[in-house]
């Protein structure tokens, strides 16, 4: 299943809509990288609201996306992690350390807008 990626101004929004296989996740990683380059995006939001499981593999791919994109000066925000999913993640030791997170899409966009409006970038939560 392909993850739709929407361009909204200087930002890209990838909305995961169903459970993803490893191959789907890898496909998302290359698609996002390609588009960040193509559109010179300032920020990327990955909306994982629909993910009911975030295991070590999915978490690793999200970290890779964030780190690779950061090399181009672009910030990734992961939004919509569900409470139960977060609980299971920390039991597994998956904390997505140093990747900004936000409650939902709206919050994620607010975070990016604030960061790029002030230029230097306010530290996100």
């Amino acid at each position: 299943m392909q993850v739709p990626i929407l361009k909204q101004g200087p930002f890209l929004i990838a909305t995961i809509q169903a459970a993803l296989t490893d191959a789907d996740l890898e496909q998302l990683r290359s698609a996002l990288l390609e588009r960040v380059v193509r559109f010179r995006s300032l920020g990327v939001i990955v909306d994982v609201t629909a993910m009911d499981v975030m295991d070590s593999y999915a978490s690793r791919i999200l970290l890779q996306i964030s780190h690779m994109i950061r090399l181009r000066g672009t910030e990734t925000v992961i939004v919509g992690i569900q409470p139960e999913v977060a609980f299971a993640m920390v039991q597994l030791g998956l904390t997505l350390e140093d990747v900004p997170t936000a409650l939902d899409l709206e919050e994620g966009l607010a975070h990016l807008q604030q960061k790029f409006a002030t230029g230097s970038g306010a530290p996100g939560p």
Binding site: D52, D55, S56, Q82, E84, F87, A88, L92
Partner: peptide, 17 residues
């Protein structure tokens, strides 16, 4: 509970992977 079901599903994901 939904929370335990998520823990179980996550464990299955790890083991099968």
């Amino acid at each position: 509970s939904a929370s335990d079901a998520t823990l179980i599903a996550t464990a299955i994901s790890e083991l099968t992977r």
